[in-house]
Nucleic acid binder design. Structure first.
Length: 414
RNA sequence: GUGGGCGUAGCUCAGCUUGGUAGAGCGCCGGAUUGUGGUUCCGGUGGCCGAGGGUUCGAAUCCCUCCGCCCACCCCA
C-alpha cells in the first residue's frame, strides 16, 4: 500500500473549498493594494538559499531537500520563497520598472523537519514582497494588508507581534553586548541555552523554559541598542500602525530564524494551533539583494502566511458544496435529452449532476448530494415539453417548460 | 535528531488486564411491488486485528524487533 510520504498530505473536498476561499480572499486583498502575482520555480540552485537564507540557519543546515542534478549542479526544493523572488527581481531587472515592485505568491514549500500539529514537510505559503523602498510607510502598509487578509479569511483573535532587529550597524554591537552578559548568566540556565549562548545568542531570548524567564528578562534587548536610523524607522512604523488603528504588541525578544531580516520583523500568533502557534511571519530585508549578488541596493519587506495553519484555525463546520440541480432521466431517450439540457444549464452557470438509474435511487442520491432541485425527465415530459422540477427543500414539484426551469434555477442561485 | 502516545471494517471505536482465530455505531449497497429523497423497518457488503519473529495445543490479546501515524522538544509558516 503506497501512502503519501511522511509530512505530506492530500487535501480533499470539502476542505479544499476552504483553501480556495482563503486564496481567493488573499488575491482580492492583494489586488486592492496593487500587488501582482509572481510564480517562481519550486526548484532552485542550492546556492540561492545558502546565501539568501543564511548558511548557518537551521533551514539550510538540516532541513533542505537537496540533491545533485544529472549535470552535477546541486538543486534544492524551495524551503521559502523570498530568496527566489529577489533572485527573479534581480535576474529580470525589475528594479528598472517604475515604482515599488509589489509581488505576491502562493504555493508549496519544503522543509525536512519532524512533522507535528501545524508543521508539515510540504506546506503552503501565501506571501507578498514590496521591493524598492526603505520607507516605514511601506512596512505599515504591508502589515495592514496582511492583517486585512487574515480578517477577511475569517480569522478572529489573532495577535500581531512586532520588533526591530536593527541593521548591520547596530545589531553586531548588541549581539556582542548580549554575549558578554551571557558569560555570567548562561551557566545558570538550561542546557539548550548554554549551548545557544555560544552558537546563536539571540535564540536564548525566546527560550520557553520557565526557570530561565527571570534571567532572560534581565538581559538587554535589541530595542535598547538600536542605532538612531533604526530607532527612527521603528518609531515611525509604530506610529503608522497606530494611525491605522492596528493593534500590536512590541516583543523585544522576538527572534526570527532567517538571517536576512533587518529592522522591522513581525509575526501573528493564534491559539488553537498547538505548539506551532505562528500563522505568519515577516520582516524587512534591506541587504538581501546585495548578498545575492545584486549591484543595486534593493531594500524590501515581506511576509509569508502559513496557509495550512490559517486554514486550520479558520476551518469550522464544513458543509458539502451545494449542488444546484440533479437531472433524473428515465430511460435511454431521456438520458440523451437530459444531457443536452444539462449542458445548457451549465452554460448558464448552474451546477448540474446527471444521474442514470431508477428514480428512487436517483432521488436518494440527489438528497445525499445536497441538490437544491431535481429535474425528472420521462417520456411524458419529453412529449409535453414540460418537465417535473422538484424543490428538494420543500418537496414541492411543478411541471415547467425549459425557460421556466432556467428562470427558477437562476432565481434560486441569487 | 530526541522523547511520549497510538495502530482492529471506508470512518469513530469496543475487545487485550484474566489467550480459545472479531464486534458496535456511522457509512456504503439492496429490499419494504408500478416514475419520487429525507424518517422508520429488514437484509447485505466489508477486516492477512500495521508488518515480521517468539512463547503456547492455541495469540487481536503475552514478549521482542521493525514500520507507520499523532503530539511534544528543537525550529518555524
Amino acid at each position: 500500500m503506497i501512502k503519501a510520504v511522511k509530512g505530506t498530505r492530500d487535501l480533499l473536498p470539502p476542505s479544499t473549498e476552504v483553501w480556495n476561499k482563503v486564496e481567493a480572499v488573499a488575491r482580492e486583498v492583494f489586488r486592492t493594494y496593487n500587488y501582482h502575482e509572481i510564480r517562481t520555480p519550486i526548484l532552485e540552485e542550492t546556492q540561492l538559499f545558502a546565501r539568501g537564507v543564511g548558511a548557518d540557519t537551521d533551514i539550510v543546515t538540516k532541513e533542505m531537500y537537496t540533491f545533485t542534478d544529472r549535470d552535477e549542479t546541486s538543486v534544492t526544493l524551495r524551503p521559502e520563497n523570498t530568496a527566489s523572488v529577489i533572485r527573479a527581481y534581480i535576474e529580470h531587472r525589475l528594479d528598472q520598472r517604475p515604482g515599488v515592485q509589489k509581488l505576491y505568491y502562493m504555493g508549496p514549500m519544503f522543509r525536512r523537519e519532524r512533522p507535528q500539529k501545524g508543521r508539515y514537510r510540504q506546506f503552503f505559503q501565501i506571501g507578498a514582497e514590496a521591493i524598492g523602498s526603505e520607507s516605514p510607510v511601506v512596512d505599515a502598509e504591508v502589515i495592514e494588508m496582511v492583517m486585512e487578509v487574515l480578517e477577511r479569511a475569517g480569522l478572529g483573535g489573532a495577535k500581531l507581534l512586532i520588533n526591530s532587529v536593527g541593521d548591520h550597524n547596530c545589531r553586531p554591537q548588541y549581539v556582542e553586548k548580549l554575549r558578554e552578559e551571557l558569560k555570567d548568566a548562561a551557566p545558570q540556565m538550561c542546557g539548550d541555552c548554554q549551548r545557544r549562548a555560544e552558537t546563536n545568542p539571540l535564540r536564548v531570548l525566546d527560550c520557553k523554559v520557565e526557570a530561565d524567564q527571570p534571567i532572560i528578562e534581565k538581559l538587554p534587548t535589541i530595542i535598547d541598542y538600536l542605532c538612531d536610523p533604526c530607532r527612527a524607522h521603528f518609531e515611525a512604523v509604530k506610529q503608522y500602525l497606530g494611525d491605522r488603528g492596528i493593534e500590536y504588541e512590541v516583543r523585544p525578544r522576538m527572534v526570527r530564524g532567517l538571517d536576512y531580516y533587518m529592522r522591522t520583523t513581525f509575526e501573528v500568533v493564534h491559539g488553537a494551533l498547538g505548539a506551532q502557534n505562528s500563522v505568519l511571519g515577516g520582516g524587512r530585508y534591506d541587504g538581501l539583494a546585495e548578498s545575492l549578488g545584486s549591484k543595486v541596493h534593493s531594500p524590501g519587506i515581506g511576509f509569508s502566511i502559513g496557509e495550512d495553519r490559517l486554514v486550520m484555525s479558520v476551518e469550522g463546520e464544513q458543509r458539502a458544496t451545494p449542488l444546484d440541480l440533479c437531472v433524473a432521466p428515465l430511460g435511454e431517450a431521456a438520458v440523451r435529452h437530459g444531457a443536452v439540457m444539462a449542458r445548457d444549464f451549465r452554460r448558464a452557470g448552474v451546477s448540474v449532476e446527471l444521474v442514470e438509474g431508477k428514480l428512487k435511487r436517483v432521488m436518494e442520491l440527489a438528497n445525499k448530494l445536497g441538490a437544491r432541485f431535481t429535474l425528472i425527465i420521462g417520456d411524458n415530459e419529453m412529449a409535453a415539453g414540460r418537465y417535473a422540477l422538484k424543490d428538494m427543500t420543500t418537496g414541492d414539484q411543478q411541471s415547467l417548460t425549459r425557460d421556466e426551469i432556467a428562470a427558477r434555477l437562476a432565481a434560486a442561485r441569487s
